[in-house]
Write a protein that binds this DNA or RNA. Structure first.
Length: 875
DNA sequence: GCAGTCACG
DNA sequence: ACGTACGTGACTGCG
């Protein structure tokens, strides 16, 4: 039998170390997890390397210990444990239990004493001992049989303290560590020691005299010195300090070594704890996770012909797709259930089944789904017009908590405690291994998803109703999904030839600039590599370093702008970057997305992604097509109507976020500005600079505009100073003056942060929520970020609410007016339509009308609009 | 897969 | 003292 090995962990110390070493991670429910995570990774590593046969985690029991009898100030003056750490201890305990590891604490004793006592006992039985702690004091316990591991650099490195190692490092024996502490004290434990004696002096004295006691016995032989005076004056304190630093090895512990046997984790429990904590990387890495994903047997039926009796008035429906690109990917099949045994219909059968098609298109047949927009778009490709969607798990989950990540049914259902469904990744594999499985696997997977949707629907709807968010979900997001699906499927025509011609011209320019840059640099290099560019600019050409990144020199545009006067290469690099971006992202990238069959691009609007309630757009992203610089703006010339004789029509809200702010803050000045139809930036400049309207010059207006942006983003003097390239002080003065002119805004900002601290979340006009667990963080940076988010989210989110409502109203209005015009895109505060020329006049009437009255605010909403033969011209 | 950069509102 | 403007997505280089 191999020799026994006992592992003793100092729970408190390791948790502290991990907490301060790692950034403040949170899991999906907003619990901080960094200490538990750090502890876990360290434990995993030690388990693997050391393979101990016995383990114990010792904790400190409470505030008072027997050491306080000796010295009441022991550990006095310590900062209280940050709440972000305290909240992690219950999870740490749970985790240790799941590992099947004994944990122990003892009234009046510290973890050190428990560890010391057990280490001594184990040594006497010839058991090897490993102690792990972040506290150097423990090294006093090192012997030939006991090695003390001290974590370094937070928790990533471990220093293995054997007696030999300690001898080499200090020239002392382990037991002399206690004497050293007695002399030098320990600020963190509030152990006084001898004032004026540090590590160096203590070590020197101990090398000579051996121990504190022998030192004082030999005191008469010491030469008179300041040091000697201090030692003599503090003899009692030195003796007491040594006593305090001594780990007690005869604590009255009630655990026996035989209780500590380690037989590996309870895998199921451990996985549950890891899941709860959101330790995804550990779950993926662990070899038992796959096995644990195994599910209870599940009954389903693959049908080759859909019959009327298969279809009910209310069913959960899941369309299984081969990947997330639902405009192009293969449709695999449909699973349906009403709570009874699900049926799975392979898609080739779906496509041929009139019975199923009619049922799917029947708006009176109620469907519960997840990501109905994807299904709608993918079914439309097969000529099926999905209708009657009454529940969408993806959207409902998103409204319930937009902070959660994941769109997989497995992830969403798990959040509601339903686990009987597998992750797509488990079924399909990932990366190069990804493949479509057998029909049986697919059928079971899709059936489990349909069943999951069916199962969680009541619970989720109840949750939404409790939070008064059901209306937002049911009457805004759900109908919007179908409108977005239509917009995506319709797509927008992009003229390939236009882009190709621009690409050719860009290429010619890029080649010339590239050569110019190489000449100026004196060598060829990869301009697209910030690393190589940094070497050229800052090492070779010796330009001044203004900003650094984590990995080296910053070469970002704002930095290069400041270097423009230093070297002609700078403006060439800026131009190269600008044109290169156009070429790679907007010419080549967009060309790749044009569908061959219809000459259109079909973006996917992510409706359940942003933290604020905005949409996002992918493959391609049509919400960031260039406009600010003319060269880029020309890209918009490639976006054209789908039919001859049609135009593109664009309408955008003017200053919607500031109007929302005026509405929510009820600031008299801001409200008045909008009611009077003033230019809000000019008005801000007048108030901040105390001038009349005609005295506002372009610089003042520019500064005022930046302040207004800052207000919307959650103002900070630093941020504003960066943006305007002024000092922080000047920025602070601007902000002060702004708040003096708009006191209601100041009040609102203060109130919203207070609200967020009280409730843990902020809300928008339509009661969209965003949780902000970091708002009570003790870390200044993290808390400040959350505070700015608290200020920004109601503004950005309410603006998102308004345009979403406008889209729904617009859709209804176009139908009511029997128009051919189609909504194609949404770009946060802007809607883009295509329509026959004959409808221009009517659009110019109804689009602003509908958008301006989507939601009534205390200030008017204003919409500007334009039309043209291309998106470029619709400006 | 992450960091840096840059396009948009 | 602390050191960031809010919200996104795509591309490139690099380990």
């Amino acid at each position: 039998m191999t020799k026994e090995k006992l592992l003793l962990l100092d729970g408190n110390s390791l948790a502290y170390r991990a907490f301060f070493a790692l950034p403040l991670l949170t899991n999906d429910s907003g619990i901080h997890t960094n200490a538990v995570y750090g502890f876990t990774t360290m434990l995993q590593r030690i388990l693997e390397e050391e393979q101990p046969s016995k383990i114990l985690v010792a904790f400190d029991a409470g505030k008072t210990t027997f050491r306080h009898e000796t010295f009441t100030e022991y550990k006095g003056g310590r900062q209280k444990t940050p709440p972000e750490l305290s909240e992690q201890f219950p999870y740490l305990r749970k985790l240790i239990d799941a590992y099947g590891i004994k944990q122990y604490e003892l009234e009046l004793y510290e973890a050190d004493d428990i560890i010391g006592t057990l280490a001594k006992e184990a040594s006497s039985q010839d058991i090897d001992v490993i102690i792990v702690s972040g506290d150097r004091d423990l090294t006093q316990l090192a012997t030939e049989q006991v090695t003390v591991y001290i974590t370094k650099k937070g928790i990533t490195e471990i220093e293995k303290n054997t007696p030999a190692y300690i001898e080499e490092k200090y020239g002392l024996t382990p037991s002399q560590i206690i004497d050293m502490k007695g002399l030098m004290g320990d600020a963190s434990d509030n152990i006084p020691g001898v004032p004026g004696v540090g590590e160096k002096t203590a070590v020197k004295l101990l090398k000579e005299h051996g121990s504190v006691e022998s030192l004082y016995k030999a005191m008469d032989t010491l030469k008179a010195s300041k040091m000697k005076e201090k030692l003599v004056a503090n003899e009692e304190q030195a003796i007491m300090s040594k006593k305090l630093a001594t780990i007690f090895t005869d604590a009255p512990i009630e655990v026996a070594l035989t209780d500590l046997a380690y037989n590996g984790p309870n895998e199921e429990e451990l996985i549950n704890v890891w899941r709860e904590l959101g330790f995804k990387s550990l779950l993926e890495k662990s070899d038992f996770s796959v096995q644990e994903e195994e599910q209870a047997p599940f009954d389903y039926e693959i049908v080759q012909e859909v019959k009327q009796e298969h279809l009910k008035d209310v069913m959960a429906v899941h369309l299984e797709l081969a990947d997330e690109h639902y405009h192009t990917c293969q449709q695999l099949g449909i699973a349906l259930t009403d709570g009874a045994k699900p049926i799975y219909v392979p898609f080739d059968i779906v496509a041929k089944s009139d019975v199923l098609r009619l049922w799917l298109e029947d708006a009176t047949k109620i469907k519960y789904m997840s990501d109905s927009k994807a299904a709608q778009a993918a079914l439309r490709r097969a000529g099926i017009r999905l209708a009657g969607v009454d529940f969408d798990l993806l959207l409902a989950s998103y409204i319930n908590n937009p902070g959660l990540s994941g769109d997989d049914v497995a992830t969403l259902a798990k959040e509601l405690g339903y686990r009987d469904v597998q992750a797509n990744e488990t079924v399909y594999g990932k990366g190069a291994k990804r493949a479509i499985p057998t029909i049986d696997t697919l059928a079971e997977h899709a059936s489990r998803k349909a069943f999951a949707v069916w199962s969680v629907q009541p619970k989720l709807e109840t949750l939404l109703k409790e939070n008064e968010q059901f209306d937002l979900y049911k009457n805004l997001e759900l109908p919007l999904a179908s409108i977005l699906g239509e917009m995506e499927s319709e797509g927008i025509t992009v003229n390939r030839a236009t882009l190709e011609k621009m690409g050719q011209e860009l290429n010619d320019k890029l080649v010339i600039i590239e050569q110019e840059i190489y000449k100026e640099a004196g060598e060829a290099f990869n301009i697209n590599s910030p690393k190589q560019l940094g070497v050229i600019l800052f090492d070779k050409l010796g330009l001044p370093v203004i900003k650094k990144t984590k990995t080296g020199y910053s070469t970002a545009a704002d930095v290069l702008e400041k270097l423009k006067s230093e070297h002609t290469i700078i403006e060439h690099i800026l131009l190269y970057r600008q044109l290169g971006k156009l070429q790679s992202t907007y010419i080549e990238g967009l060309l790749k997305e044009i569908h061959n069959d219809d000459g259109k691009v079909h973006t996917r609007f992510q409706q359940a992604l942003t933290a604020t309630g905005r949409l996002s757009s992918t493959d391609p992203n049509l919400q960031n097509i260039p406009i600010r610089l003319e060269e880029g703006r020309k890209i918009r010339q490639a976006f054209v109507p789908s039919k001859e004789g049609w135009i593109l029509f664009s309408a955008d809200y003017s200053q919607i976020e500031l109007r929302v702010l005026a509405h929510m803050s009820e600031d008299k000045n801001l409200v008045e500005a909008f009611r009077e139809g003033m230019d809000v930036h000019t008005r801000t400049a007048m108030d901040v600079f105390h001038v009349s309207a005609d005295e506002v010059d372009s610089n003042m207006r520019r500064a005022a505009k930046a302040v207004n942006f800052g207000i919307v983003y959650g103002i900070s003097d630093y941020g504003l100073s960066q943006n305007l390239d002024i000092t922080r002080k000047e920025a602070a003065t601007f902000i002060e003056k702004y708040f003096a002119s708009f006191p209601g805004v100041k009040q609102y900002m203060d109130d919203i942060v207070q609200d967020a601290k009280f409730n843990g979340y902020v809300t928008t006009i339509l009661n969209r929520r965003r949780y902000l667990p970091d708002i009570t963080s003790s870390n200044f940076n993290i808390r400040s970020f959350a505070e700015r988010t608290a200020m920004n989210t109601p503004i950005q989110g309410s603006a998102a609410d308004i345009i979403k409502k406008a889209m729904i109203d617009m859709d209804a209005r176009l139908k009511k007016e029997n128009m051919q015009a189609k909504l194609l895109l949404q770009v946060h505060d802007e809607l883009i339509f295509e329509a026959p020329k004959e409808e221009i006049a009517l659009l110019e009437k109804i689009v602003p009308e509908v958008m301006e009255h989507a939601i009534e605010l205390t200030v008017p909403l204003k919409v500007d609009f334009n039309h043209g033969a291309t998106w470029y011209e619709a400006k």
